[in-house]
Design a protein around this nucleic acid. Structure first.
Length: 521
RNA sequence: GGCCCCUUCGUCUAGAGGCCUAGGACACCGGCUUUUCAUGCCGGCAACACGGGUUCGACUCCCGUAGGGGUCACCA
Protein backbone atom coordinates (compact mmCIF):
# COMPACT_ATOMS: atom_id res chain seq x y z
CA UNK A 1 0.00 0.00 0.00
CA UNK A 2 1.04 3.62 0.15
CA UNK A 3 4.12 4.71 1.93
CA UNK A 4 2.41 7.44 3.89
CA UNK A 5 -0.92 5.79 4.47
CA UNK A 6 -2.48 8.91 3.03
CA UNK A 7 -5.75 8.18 1.29
CA UNK A 8 -7.86 10.77 -0.46
CA UNK A 9 -11.01 10.49 -2.51
CA UNK A 10 -13.02 12.31 -5.11
CA UNK A 11 -16.71 11.58 -4.80
CA UNK A 12 -18.87 12.95 -7.61
CA UNK A 13 -22.56 12.34 -8.15
CA UNK A 14 -23.48 10.93 -11.52
CA UNK A 15 -25.60 13.81 -12.75
CA UNK A 16 -23.94 14.37 -16.11
CA UNK A 17 -20.51 15.25 -17.36
CA UNK A 18 -17.78 16.18 -14.91
CA UNK A 19 -18.16 19.84 -13.96
CA UNK A 20 -15.06 22.01 -14.15
CA UNK A 21 -15.31 22.76 -10.44
CA UNK A 22 -15.45 19.06 -9.72
CA UNK A 23 -12.42 18.58 -11.90
CA UNK A 24 -10.50 21.08 -9.80
CA UNK A 25 -11.50 19.22 -6.63
CA UNK A 26 -10.47 15.93 -8.24
CA UNK A 27 -7.18 17.45 -9.32
CA UNK A 28 -6.29 18.75 -5.86
CA UNK A 29 -7.06 15.39 -4.32
CA UNK A 30 -5.03 13.63 -6.97
CA UNK A 31 -2.15 16.04 -6.40
CA UNK A 32 -2.19 15.50 -2.66
CA UNK A 33 -2.12 11.73 -3.11
CA UNK A 34 0.75 12.05 -5.54
CA UNK A 35 2.63 14.46 -3.33
CA UNK A 36 2.29 12.32 -0.23
CA UNK A 37 2.67 9.01 -1.96
CA UNK A 38 -0.87 8.08 -1.03
CA UNK A 39 -3.83 6.54 -2.80
CA UNK A 40 -6.48 8.34 -4.82
CA UNK A 41 -9.93 6.80 -4.52
CA UNK A 42 -12.85 7.48 -6.85
CA UNK A 43 -16.21 6.95 -5.24
CA UNK A 44 -19.58 7.46 -6.88
CA UNK A 45 -22.27 9.05 -4.73
CA UNK A 46 -25.42 7.75 -6.31
CA UNK A 47 -27.78 7.28 -3.40
CA UNK A 48 -30.50 9.41 -4.93
CA UNK A 49 -31.94 7.36 -7.73
CA UNK A 50 -34.29 10.14 -8.80
CA UNK A 51 -31.35 12.34 -9.75
CA UNK A 52 -29.40 9.69 -11.54
CA UNK A 53 -28.68 10.55 -15.15
CA UNK A 54 -27.98 7.66 -17.46
CA UNK A 55 -24.51 7.35 -18.93
CA UNK A 56 -23.18 9.73 -16.29
CA UNK A 57 -20.74 7.26 -14.86
CA UNK A 58 -19.18 6.54 -18.25
CA UNK A 59 -18.96 10.23 -18.91
CA UNK A 60 -17.30 11.05 -15.62
CA UNK A 61 -14.79 8.24 -15.98
CA UNK A 62 -14.03 9.34 -19.53
CA UNK A 63 -13.54 12.94 -18.45
CA UNK A 64 -11.23 11.89 -15.62
CA UNK A 65 -9.18 9.79 -18.00
CA UNK A 66 -9.03 12.51 -20.61
CA UNK A 67 -7.60 14.79 -17.95
CA UNK A 68 -5.12 12.13 -17.00
CA UNK A 69 -6.33 11.81 -13.43
CA UNK A 70 -6.18 8.06 -12.99
CA UNK A 71 -7.54 6.64 -9.76
CA UNK A 72 -5.93 3.91 -7.69
CA UNK A 73 -9.23 2.55 -6.46
CA UNK A 74 -12.74 2.89 -7.76
CA UNK A 75 -14.96 1.73 -10.59
CA UNK A 76 -12.87 0.91 -13.63
CA UNK A 77 -15.80 1.19 -16.01
CA UNK A 78 -19.53 1.69 -15.93
CA UNK A 79 -20.30 -2.01 -16.05
CA UNK A 80 -19.79 -2.22 -12.28
CA UNK A 81 -23.31 -0.91 -11.94
CA UNK A 82 -24.77 -3.85 -13.86
CA UNK A 83 -22.67 -6.62 -12.42
CA UNK A 84 -23.70 -6.19 -8.82
CA UNK A 85 -27.32 -6.92 -9.54
CA UNK A 86 -30.18 -5.16 -7.84
CA UNK A 87 -29.16 -2.15 -5.85
CA UNK A 88 -29.22 -2.88 -2.21
CA UNK A 89 -27.95 -6.39 -1.72
CA UNK A 90 -24.37 -5.38 -1.98
CA UNK A 91 -21.64 -5.56 0.55
CA UNK A 92 -19.28 -7.62 -1.51
CA UNK A 93 -15.90 -6.05 -1.85
CA UNK A 94 -12.68 -6.22 -3.72
CA UNK A 95 -14.15 -7.67 -6.88
CA UNK A 96 -12.83 -6.93 -10.31
CA UNK A 97 -9.63 -5.33 -9.14
CA UNK A 98 -11.26 -2.05 -8.25
CA UNK A 99 -9.56 -1.89 -4.89
CA UNK A 100 -9.82 -3.44 -1.46
CA UNK A 101 -12.53 -1.20 -0.05
CA UNK A 102 -15.30 -1.57 -2.60
CA UNK A 103 -17.78 -1.51 -3.91
CA UNK A 104 -17.12 2.10 -4.81
CA UNK A 105 -20.60 3.03 -5.93
CA UNK A 106 -22.82 3.94 -3.03
CA UNK A 107 -25.82 2.41 -4.73
CA UNK A 108 -24.18 -0.93 -4.05
CA UNK A 109 -23.54 -0.32 -0.39
CA UNK A 110 -27.05 -0.04 1.01
CA UNK A 111 -26.65 -2.90 3.48
CA UNK A 112 -23.57 -1.25 4.93
CA UNK A 113 -25.38 2.01 5.55
CA UNK A 114 -28.42 0.36 7.05
CA UNK A 115 -26.23 -1.59 9.41
CA UNK A 116 -24.59 1.60 10.63
CA UNK A 117 -27.89 3.37 11.00
CA UNK A 118 -29.15 0.48 13.09
CA UNK A 119 -26.05 0.71 15.27
CA UNK A 120 -26.78 4.36 15.85
CA UNK A 121 -30.37 3.63 16.77
CA UNK A 122 -29.40 0.80 19.09
CA UNK A 123 -26.87 3.01 20.83
CA UNK A 124 -29.42 5.76 21.31
CA UNK A 125 -27.61 8.17 19.01
CA UNK A 126 -30.39 8.18 16.46
CA UNK A 127 -34.15 7.82 16.40
CA UNK A 128 -37.11 7.39 14.09
CA UNK A 129 -38.94 10.51 13.07
CA UNK A 130 -42.45 10.46 11.64
CA UNK A 131 -43.07 13.90 10.18
CA UNK A 132 -43.86 13.98 6.49
CA UNK A 133 -41.99 16.29 4.12
CA UNK A 134 -45.18 18.32 3.83
CA UNK A 135 -45.47 18.77 7.56
CA UNK A 136 -41.85 19.85 7.81
CA UNK A 137 -42.28 22.30 4.97
CA UNK A 138 -45.33 23.75 6.71
CA UNK A 139 -43.37 24.21 9.91
CA UNK A 140 -40.58 25.98 8.07
CA UNK A 141 -43.12 28.15 6.33
CA UNK A 142 -44.74 28.98 9.65
CA UNK A 143 -41.40 29.99 11.13
CA UNK A 144 -40.69 32.23 8.19
CA UNK A 145 -44.08 33.88 8.57
CA UNK A 146 -43.25 34.54 12.21
CA UNK A 147 -39.82 35.79 11.22
CA UNK A 148 -38.23 33.29 13.54
CA UNK A 149 -35.50 30.79 12.76
CA UNK A 150 -36.69 27.31 12.06
CA UNK A 151 -35.04 24.45 13.82
CA UNK A 152 -36.25 20.89 13.98
CA UNK A 153 -37.52 20.08 17.47
CA UNK A 154 -36.76 16.65 18.76
CA UNK A 155 -40.03 14.86 19.67
CA UNK A 156 -40.53 14.04 23.31
CA UNK A 157 -41.06 11.23 23.87
CA UNK A 158 -39.25 9.79 20.87
CA UNK A 159 -41.27 7.54 18.56
CA UNK A 160 -40.74 3.89 19.41
CA UNK A 161 -39.71 1.26 16.87
CA UNK A 162 -43.24 -0.07 17.10
CA UNK A 163 -44.72 3.30 16.28
CA UNK A 164 -42.30 3.63 13.40
CA UNK A 165 -43.34 0.27 12.05
CA UNK A 166 -46.98 1.17 12.42
CA UNK A 167 -46.40 4.38 10.50
CA UNK A 168 -44.64 2.49 7.74
CA UNK A 169 -47.53 0.01 7.60
CA UNK A 170 -49.87 2.92 7.05
CA UNK A 171 -47.71 4.01 4.17
CA UNK A 172 -46.24 6.99 5.96
CA UNK A 173 -42.56 7.70 5.41
CA UNK A 174 -40.26 7.16 8.36
CA UNK A 175 -36.83 8.70 8.53
CA UNK A 176 -34.00 8.36 10.99
CA UNK A 177 -32.42 11.41 12.58
CA UNK A 178 -29.17 11.77 14.44
CA UNK A 179 -29.28 13.24 17.93
CA UNK A 180 -27.08 16.28 18.03
CA UNK A 181 -25.34 16.88 21.33
CA UNK A 182 -25.51 20.19 23.13
CA UNK A 183 -21.86 21.11 22.64
CA UNK A 184 -20.38 23.38 20.01
CA UNK A 185 -18.51 21.61 17.24
CA UNK A 186 -15.18 22.86 15.95
CA UNK A 187 -13.90 21.94 12.54
CA UNK A 188 -10.14 22.01 12.20
CA UNK A 189 -9.54 22.94 8.61
CA UNK A 190 -6.09 22.85 7.02
CA UNK A 191 -6.91 25.91 4.95
CA UNK A 192 -9.35 27.92 7.05
CA UNK A 193 -8.10 27.12 10.53
CA UNK A 194 -10.59 26.43 13.29
CA UNK A 195 -14.23 27.03 12.51
CA UNK A 196 -16.68 26.63 15.34
CA UNK A 197 -20.38 26.16 14.95
CA UNK A 198 -22.45 26.84 18.04
CA UNK A 199 -24.58 24.01 19.38
CA UNK A 200 -27.78 25.98 18.93
CA UNK A 201 -27.07 26.12 15.22
CA UNK A 202 -27.10 22.37 15.00
CA UNK A 203 -30.28 20.32 14.71
CA UNK A 204 -31.13 16.65 14.56
CA UNK A 205 -30.73 15.98 10.87
CA UNK A 206 -31.88 13.09 8.72
CA UNK A 207 -29.41 10.28 8.16
CA UNK A 208 -31.78 7.80 6.57
CA UNK A 209 -34.49 8.78 4.16
CA UNK A 210 -38.02 7.51 3.99
CA UNK A 211 -37.08 5.13 1.21
CA UNK A 212 -34.49 3.44 3.38
CA UNK A 213 -31.50 4.99 1.64
CA UNK A 214 -28.95 6.97 3.62
CA UNK A 215 -28.59 10.69 3.16
CA UNK A 216 -25.36 12.08 1.77
CA UNK A 217 -24.06 12.82 5.25
CA UNK A 218 -24.33 9.29 6.56
CA UNK A 219 -23.10 7.60 3.42
CA UNK A 220 -20.20 9.99 3.08
CA UNK A 221 -19.00 9.55 6.65
CA UNK A 222 -19.40 5.79 6.68
CA UNK A 223 -17.57 5.41 3.40
CA UNK A 224 -14.78 7.78 4.32
CA UNK A 225 -14.22 5.75 7.46
CA UNK A 226 -14.52 2.33 5.86
CA UNK A 227 -12.36 3.37 2.94
CA UNK A 228 -9.81 4.69 5.41
CA UNK A 229 -9.80 8.18 3.96
CA UNK A 230 -7.27 10.35 5.78
CA UNK A 231 -7.69 13.71 4.00
CA UNK A 232 -10.89 15.24 2.76
CA UNK A 233 -10.41 18.05 0.24
CA UNK A 234 -13.74 19.38 -0.94
CA UNK A 235 -15.40 22.63 -1.93
CA UNK A 236 -16.12 25.32 0.62
CA UNK A 237 -19.83 24.81 0.00
CA UNK A 238 -19.42 21.77 2.25
CA UNK A 239 -18.05 23.68 5.22
CA UNK A 240 -21.37 23.79 7.04
CA UNK A 241 -21.81 20.05 6.47
CA UNK A 242 -18.63 19.18 8.24
CA UNK A 243 -19.91 19.66 11.82
CA UNK A 244 -22.67 17.20 10.96
CA UNK A 245 -20.14 14.76 9.66
CA UNK A 246 -18.03 15.12 12.77
CA UNK A 247 -21.12 14.43 14.88
CA UNK A 248 -21.75 11.19 13.00
CA UNK A 249 -18.12 10.19 13.32
CA UNK A 250 -18.22 10.68 17.06
CA UNK A 251 -21.46 8.74 17.42
CA UNK A 252 -20.01 5.89 15.40
CA UNK A 253 -16.62 5.99 17.04
CA UNK A 254 -14.80 6.89 13.85
CA UNK A 255 -11.72 9.06 13.58
CA UNK A 256 -12.16 12.46 11.99
CA UNK A 257 -10.04 12.85 8.85
CA UNK A 258 -8.09 16.00 8.05
CA UNK A 259 -10.40 18.47 6.39
CA UNK A 260 -9.55 21.20 3.91
CA UNK A 261 -12.25 23.25 2.21
CA UNK A 262 -11.29 24.63 -1.16
CA UNK A 263 -12.28 28.07 -2.38
CA UNK A 264 -15.05 28.05 -4.96
CA UNK A 265 -14.69 28.87 -8.65
CA UNK A 266 -16.96 31.49 -10.19
CA UNK A 267 -17.66 33.01 -13.56
CA UNK A 268 -16.12 36.35 -14.34
CA UNK A 269 -19.52 37.82 -13.58
CA UNK A 270 -19.31 36.47 -10.05
CA UNK A 271 -22.06 33.93 -10.49
CA UNK A 272 -21.61 30.20 -10.09
CA UNK A 273 -20.48 28.36 -13.17
CA UNK A 274 -23.49 26.24 -13.98
CA UNK A 275 -24.96 24.25 -16.78
CA UNK A 276 -27.69 26.83 -16.98
CA UNK A 277 -25.17 29.33 -18.35
CA UNK A 278 -25.06 27.23 -21.48
CA UNK A 279 -28.81 27.21 -21.94
CA UNK A 280 -29.00 30.94 -21.35
CA UNK A 281 -26.34 31.64 -23.95
CA UNK A 282 -28.00 29.41 -26.51
CA UNK A 283 -31.29 31.15 -25.91
CA UNK A 284 -29.60 34.46 -26.58
CA UNK A 285 -28.01 33.11 -29.73
CA UNK A 286 -24.53 33.24 -28.26
CA UNK A 287 -21.83 30.61 -28.22
CA UNK A 288 -22.38 28.63 -25.02
CA UNK A 289 -19.51 28.83 -22.52
CA UNK A 290 -17.60 25.71 -21.56
CA UNK A 291 -18.74 24.46 -18.14
CA UNK A 292 -18.11 20.73 -18.07
CA UNK A 293 -14.75 19.14 -18.73
CA UNK A 294 -16.24 17.63 -21.84
CA UNK A 295 -17.07 21.09 -23.15
CA UNK A 296 -13.43 22.09 -22.99
CA UNK A 297 -12.44 18.87 -24.68
CA UNK A 298 -14.90 19.48 -27.50
CA UNK A 299 -13.76 23.09 -27.77
CA UNK A 300 -10.25 22.00 -28.53
CA UNK A 301 -8.35 22.60 -25.31
CA UNK A 302 -5.45 20.46 -24.18
CA UNK A 303 -5.78 18.61 -20.86
CA UNK A 304 -2.33 19.93 -19.95
CA UNK A 305 -3.46 23.52 -20.29
CA UNK A 306 -6.78 23.02 -18.54
CA UNK A 307 -5.19 21.20 -15.62
CA UNK A 308 -2.38 23.69 -15.29
CA UNK A 309 -4.84 26.55 -15.36
CA UNK A 310 -7.28 25.19 -12.80
CA UNK A 311 -4.43 24.15 -10.51
CA UNK A 312 -3.71 27.85 -10.20
CA UNK A 313 -7.23 28.68 -9.12
CA UNK A 314 -6.79 28.89 -5.38
CA UNK A 315 -3.27 27.55 -5.34
CA UNK A 316 0.06 28.90 -6.45
CA UNK A 317 3.59 27.64 -6.62
CA UNK A 318 4.68 30.36 -4.24
CA UNK A 319 7.02 31.99 -6.73
CA UNK A 320 6.48 33.40 -10.20
CA UNK A 321 6.28 30.02 -11.88
CA UNK A 322 2.99 29.40 -13.63
CA UNK A 323 3.32 27.01 -16.51
CA UNK A 324 4.39 23.66 -15.15
CA UNK A 325 3.59 20.06 -15.96
CA UNK A 326 1.24 17.93 -13.90
CA UNK A 327 4.21 16.03 -12.48
CA UNK A 328 5.93 19.23 -11.50
CA UNK A 329 2.71 20.47 -9.95
CA UNK A 330 2.46 17.27 -7.93
CA UNK A 331 6.01 17.78 -6.72
CA UNK A 332 5.30 21.32 -5.59
CA UNK A 333 1.76 20.91 -4.35
CA UNK A 334 0.98 21.62 -0.71
CA UNK A 335 -2.27 22.29 1.09
CA UNK A 336 -0.53 25.20 2.84
CA UNK A 337 -0.28 26.90 -0.54
CA UNK A 338 -4.03 26.93 -1.04
CA UNK A 339 -5.73 30.28 -0.64
CA UNK A 340 -8.92 31.10 1.21
CA UNK A 341 -10.64 33.42 -1.22
CA UNK A 342 -12.89 32.35 -4.06
CA UNK A 343 -11.54 32.64 -7.58
CA UNK A 344 -13.00 33.71 -10.89
CA UNK A 345 -12.51 31.62 -13.98
CA UNK A 346 -10.70 33.84 -16.47
CA UNK A 347 -11.22 32.30 -19.89
CA UNK A 348 -8.76 34.67 -21.53
CA UNK A 349 -5.99 33.36 -19.37
CA UNK A 350 -6.99 29.78 -20.06
CA UNK A 351 -6.81 30.56 -23.76
CA UNK A 352 -3.35 31.96 -23.29
CA UNK A 353 -2.26 28.87 -21.38
CA UNK A 354 -3.63 26.68 -24.12
CA UNK A 355 -1.74 28.61 -26.76
CA UNK A 356 1.48 28.13 -24.86
CA UNK A 357 0.87 24.46 -24.15
CA UNK A 358 -0.02 23.74 -27.76
CA UNK A 359 3.37 25.17 -28.67
CA UNK A 360 5.13 23.23 -25.91
CA UNK A 361 3.93 19.65 -26.10
CA UNK A 362 5.59 17.13 -28.38
CA UNK A 363 4.35 16.67 -31.93
CA UNK A 364 3.09 13.23 -31.07
CA UNK A 365 1.14 14.45 -28.11
CA UNK A 366 -0.32 17.34 -30.07
CA UNK A 367 -1.39 14.98 -32.82
CA UNK A 368 -3.00 12.68 -30.30
CA UNK A 369 -5.01 15.55 -28.84
CA UNK A 370 -5.94 16.85 -32.26
CA UNK A 371 -7.28 13.48 -33.35
CA UNK A 372 -9.25 13.26 -30.14
CA UNK A 373 -10.68 16.70 -30.79
CA UNK A 374 -11.71 15.75 -34.32
CA UNK A 375 -13.26 12.49 -33.17
CA UNK A 376 -15.18 14.05 -30.32
CA UNK A 377 -16.64 16.46 -32.83
CA UNK A 378 -17.36 13.77 -35.43
CA UNK A 379 -15.22 15.61 -37.93
CA UNK A 380 -14.53 13.86 -41.24
CA UNK A 381 -11.01 15.25 -40.93
CA UNK A 382 -10.36 12.59 -38.30
CA UNK A 383 -9.88 10.14 -41.17
CA UNK A 384 -7.02 12.11 -42.70
CA UNK A 385 -3.59 10.42 -42.59
CA UNK A 386 -1.47 11.29 -39.57
CA UNK A 387 1.12 12.88 -41.80
CA UNK A 388 -1.46 15.32 -43.12
CA UNK A 389 -2.75 16.09 -39.65
CA UNK A 390 0.79 16.76 -38.48
CA UNK A 391 1.33 19.05 -41.45
CA UNK A 392 -1.81 21.00 -40.56
CA UNK A 393 -0.64 21.45 -37.01
CA UNK A 394 2.81 22.46 -38.20
CA UNK A 395 1.46 25.06 -40.61
CA UNK A 396 -0.89 26.57 -38.05
CA UNK A 397 1.63 27.02 -35.27
CA UNK A 398 0.62 29.79 -32.96
CA UNK A 399 -3.00 28.66 -32.83
CA UNK A 400 -4.91 29.00 -29.59
CA UNK A 401 -7.30 26.06 -29.74
CA UNK A 402 -7.90 23.37 -32.36
CA UNK A 403 -10.87 25.13 -33.96
CA UNK A 404 -8.35 27.78 -35.02
CA UNK A 405 -6.54 25.14 -37.04
CA UNK A 406 -9.72 24.20 -38.86
CA UNK A 407 -10.59 27.83 -39.42
CA UNK A 408 -7.19 28.47 -40.90
CA UNK A 409 -6.59 25.43 -43.07
CA UNK A 410 -9.89 23.57 -43.21
CA UNK A 411 -10.56 24.89 -46.71
CA UNK A 412 -7.82 22.63 -48.03
CA UNK A 413 -9.99 19.61 -47.36
CA UNK A 414 -13.31 20.56 -48.91
CA UNK A 415 -14.45 20.25 -52.51
CA UNK A 416 -13.44 23.09 -54.78
CA UNK A 417 -17.11 23.81 -55.36
CA UNK A 418 -17.67 24.24 -51.62
CA UNK A 419 -15.37 27.25 -51.31
CA UNK A 420 -17.36 30.29 -50.27
CA UNK A 421 -15.91 33.50 -51.56
CA UNK A 422 -16.27 36.24 -49.00
CA UNK A 423 -17.57 39.43 -50.48
CA UNK A 424 -15.17 41.60 -48.58
CA UNK A 425 -12.16 39.54 -49.60
CA UNK A 426 -13.18 39.54 -53.25
CA UNK A 427 -13.69 43.28 -53.23
CA UNK A 428 -10.50 44.16 -51.39
CA UNK A 429 -8.12 41.72 -52.99
CA UNK A 430 -9.47 40.89 -56.43
CA UNK A 431 -11.73 43.66 -57.69
CA UNK A 432 -9.86 46.67 -56.39
CA UNK A 433 -7.87 48.73 -58.92
CA UNK A 434 -9.90 47.55 -61.91
CA UNK A 435 -9.54 43.91 -61.02
CA UNK A 436 -5.81 43.92 -60.49
CA UNK A 437 -6.10 40.78 -58.39
CA UNK A 438 -7.82 38.91 -61.19
CA UNK A 439 -5.08 40.02 -63.56
CA UNK A 440 -2.44 38.59 -61.26
CA UNK A 441 -4.27 35.29 -61.07
CA UNK A 442 -4.59 35.17 -64.84
CA UNK A 443 -0.86 35.64 -65.21
CA UNK A 444 0.28 33.39 -62.42
CA UNK A 445 -1.82 30.41 -63.33
CA UNK A 446 0.31 29.67 -66.39
CA UNK A 447 3.48 29.58 -64.29
CA UNK A 448 1.90 27.24 -61.81
CA UNK A 449 0.44 24.89 -64.39
CA UNK A 450 3.86 24.02 -65.68
CA UNK A 451 5.60 23.92 -62.30
CA UNK A 452 7.33 20.71 -61.35
CA UNK A 453 7.92 19.48 -58.72
CA UNK A 454 5.00 20.83 -56.71
CA UNK A 455 6.77 21.57 -53.47
CA UNK A 456 6.74 24.56 -51.19
CA UNK A 457 10.28 25.51 -52.09
CA UNK A 458 9.69 25.17 -55.82
CA UNK A 459 6.55 27.24 -55.47
CA UNK A 460 8.45 29.84 -53.54
CA UNK A 461 11.11 30.08 -56.25
CA UNK A 462 8.48 30.31 -58.94
CA UNK A 463 6.46 32.99 -57.19
CA UNK A 464 9.57 35.00 -56.34
CA UNK A 465 10.47 35.00 -60.01
CA UNK A 466 6.96 35.92 -60.92
CA UNK A 467 7.00 38.89 -58.57
CA UNK A 468 10.27 40.19 -59.98
CA UNK A 469 9.17 39.75 -63.56
CA UNK A 470 5.93 41.58 -62.95
CA UNK A 471 7.27 44.16 -60.53
CA UNK A 472 5.01 42.94 -57.73
CA UNK A 473 5.46 42.60 -54.01
CA UNK A 474 4.85 39.18 -52.60
CA UNK A 475 1.64 40.35 -50.96
CA UNK A 476 0.37 41.34 -54.39
CA UNK A 477 0.31 37.76 -55.51
CA UNK A 478 -0.09 35.94 -52.18
CA UNK A 479 -3.35 37.63 -51.30
CA UNK A 480 -5.14 36.94 -54.60
CA UNK A 481 -4.00 33.34 -54.36
CA UNK A 482 -5.25 33.13 -50.81
CA UNK A 483 -8.66 34.34 -51.81
CA UNK A 484 -8.76 32.01 -54.78
CA UNK A 485 -7.86 29.00 -52.66
CA UNK A 486 -9.73 29.70 -49.46
CA UNK A 487 -12.38 32.24 -50.30
CA UNK A 488 -11.04 34.47 -47.55
CA UNK A 489 -7.95 36.36 -46.57
CA UNK A 490 -6.53 33.98 -43.98
CA UNK A 491 -4.36 30.94 -44.50
CA UNK A 492 -0.98 29.55 -43.49
CA UNK A 493 2.10 30.68 -45.40
CA UNK A 494 1.19 30.79 -49.05
CA UNK A 495 3.82 28.38 -50.41
CA UNK A 496 2.89 25.72 -47.89
CA UNK A 497 -0.75 26.31 -48.53
CA UNK A 498 -0.38 25.76 -52.27
CA UNK A 499 1.64 22.65 -51.68
CA UNK A 500 -0.96 21.22 -49.33
CA UNK A 501 -3.88 21.98 -51.61
CA UNK A 502 -2.06 20.41 -54.54
CA UNK A 503 -1.47 21.53 -58.10
CA UNK A 504 -4.69 20.38 -59.70
CA UNK A 505 -6.95 21.80 -57.09
CA UNK A 506 -4.94 25.00 -56.90
CA UNK A 507 -5.25 25.53 -60.63
CA UNK A 508 -8.90 24.57 -60.53
CA UNK A 509 -9.70 27.02 -57.76
CA UNK A 510 -7.83 29.84 -59.47
CA UNK A 511 -9.78 29.25 -62.67
CA UNK A 512 -13.01 28.97 -60.76
CA UNK A 513 -12.26 32.30 -59.12
CA UNK A 514 -11.49 34.00 -62.40
CA UNK A 515 -14.67 32.67 -63.90
CA UNK A 516 -16.71 34.14 -61.10
CA UNK A 517 -14.90 37.41 -61.65
CA UNK A 518 -15.77 37.55 -65.32
CA UNK A 519 -19.38 36.70 -64.57
CA UNK A 520 -19.53 39.66 -62.27
CA UNK A 521 -18.02 41.98 -64.85
C1' G B 1 -32.75 37.08 7.80
C1' G B 2 -29.55 33.49 11.26
C1' C B 3 -24.86 31.17 11.15
C1' C B 4 -20.10 30.61 8.72
C1' C B 5 -16.08 31.99 5.31
C1' C B 6 -13.47 35.61 2.47
C1' U B 7 -11.27 40.75 0.96
C1' U B 8 -3.57 42.94 -2.82
C1' C B 9 -3.89 45.66 -10.12
C1' G B 10 -10.14 44.37 -14.40
C1' U B 11 -8.75 38.73 -13.44
C1' C B 12 -5.43 34.71 -11.17
C1' U B 13 -1.89 35.65 -7.61
C1' A B 14 3.44 36.73 -4.82
C1' G B 15 3.85 38.97 -0.21
C1' A B 16 4.02 35.44 6.54
C1' G B 17 6.24 43.78 10.54
C1' G B 18 11.14 46.95 7.82
C1' C B 19 13.54 43.29 1.52
C1' C B 20 7.46 47.15 -1.25
C1' U B 21 9.26 52.94 -5.26
C1' A B 22 4.02 46.34 -3.69
C1' G B 23 6.60 41.43 -7.88
C1' G B 24 4.69 37.92 -11.83
C1' A B 25 0.93 36.18 -15.34
C1' C B 26 -3.62 37.08 -18.34
C1' A B 27 -6.40 41.05 -20.32
C1' C B 28 -5.82 46.08 -22.07
C1' C B 29 -2.82 50.17 -24.58
C1' G B 30 1.57 51.39 -27.63
C1' G B 31 5.78 49.75 -30.71
C1' C B 32 8.72 45.98 -33.48
C1' U B 33 8.71 41.38 -36.55
C1' U B 34 5.50 39.58 -40.59
C1' U B 35 3.01 37.77 -47.89
C1' U B 36 -2.64 37.19 -44.67
C1' C B 37 -4.34 35.50 -39.75
C1' A B 38 -2.05 34.07 -35.59
C1' U B 39 2.53 33.51 -32.96
C1' G B 40 6.88 35.97 -31.11
C1' C B 41 9.69 40.23 -28.96
C1' C B 42 9.92 45.16 -26.40
C1' G B 43 7.52 48.96 -23.56
C1' G B 44 3.30 51.07 -20.81
C1' C B 45 -1.23 51.54 -17.74
C1' A B 46 -3.07 49.29 -13.36
C1' A B 47 -4.05 47.11 -6.62
C1' C B 48 -2.88 46.63 -0.59
C1' A B 49 -11.86 47.92 0.48
C1' C B 50 -12.60 51.69 4.54
C1' G B 51 -11.97 53.36 9.76
C1' G B 52 -9.70 52.71 14.28
C1' G B 53 -5.91 50.65 17.16
C1' U B 54 -0.86 47.79 18.45
C1' U B 55 4.27 49.10 17.01
C1' C B 56 10.01 53.09 16.20
C1' G B 57 7.65 51.02 11.71
C1' A B 58 2.08 47.89 8.97
C1' C B 59 -0.10 44.99 2.75
C1' U B 60 1.48 42.02 6.68
C1' C B 61 -1.11 41.66 13.93
C1' C B 62 -6.07 43.10 16.65
C1' C B 63 -11.12 45.40 16.57
C1' G B 64 -15.02 47.56 13.85
C1' U B 65 -17.57 48.95 9.17
C1' A B 66 -18.56 47.98 4.22
C1' G B 67 -18.60 44.59 0.25
C1' G B 68 -18.51 39.59 -1.75
C1' G B 69 -19.51 34.40 -1.06
C1' G B 70 -21.34 29.88 1.24
C1' U B 71 -25.18 27.49 3.95
C1' C B 72 -29.79 26.92 6.24
C1' A B 73 -33.78 19.71 2.18
C1' C B 74 -35.99 12.91 3.34
C1' C B 75 -29.95 16.79 -3.08
C1' A B 76 -25.28 15.65 -3.04
Amino acid sequence: MSASGCRVRFAPSPTGYLHIGGARTALFNWLLARRLGGRFVLRIEDTDRSRHVSDSLEKILADMRWLGLEWDEGPKDASVLDSAGAAGDAGTSGDGGEGDFGPYCQSQRLAIYQEHVQRLIDAGHAYYALETPEELAAMREQARANKTDYKYRRPDPLPTPEQAQAARDEGRPVVVRLKMGDADITVTDDILGEVTLAADQLEDFVIQKGDGWPTYHLACVVDDALMKITHVLRGQEHLMNTPKHIAIQRALGFDTPNYAHLPIIFNMSGSKMSKRDKEKAIKKGEVPPEIDVHDFRASGYLPEALLNFISLLGWSTGDDTEQITLDETARRFAVEGIGKGNAKFDRDKLLSFNTDWAARVSEDRLLECFVDYLQVNDSPLADLPDATLRRMLELCKGFRTFPDVIAKIGFAFVDDSAIEYQEKAVRKVLEKNDGAGYAVLRNVVACLESLDPWTASAIEAELTNFCEANDLKLGGVAQPLRVALSGGMVSPAIYDTLELVGRDRTINRIKQTMMQGSEQA
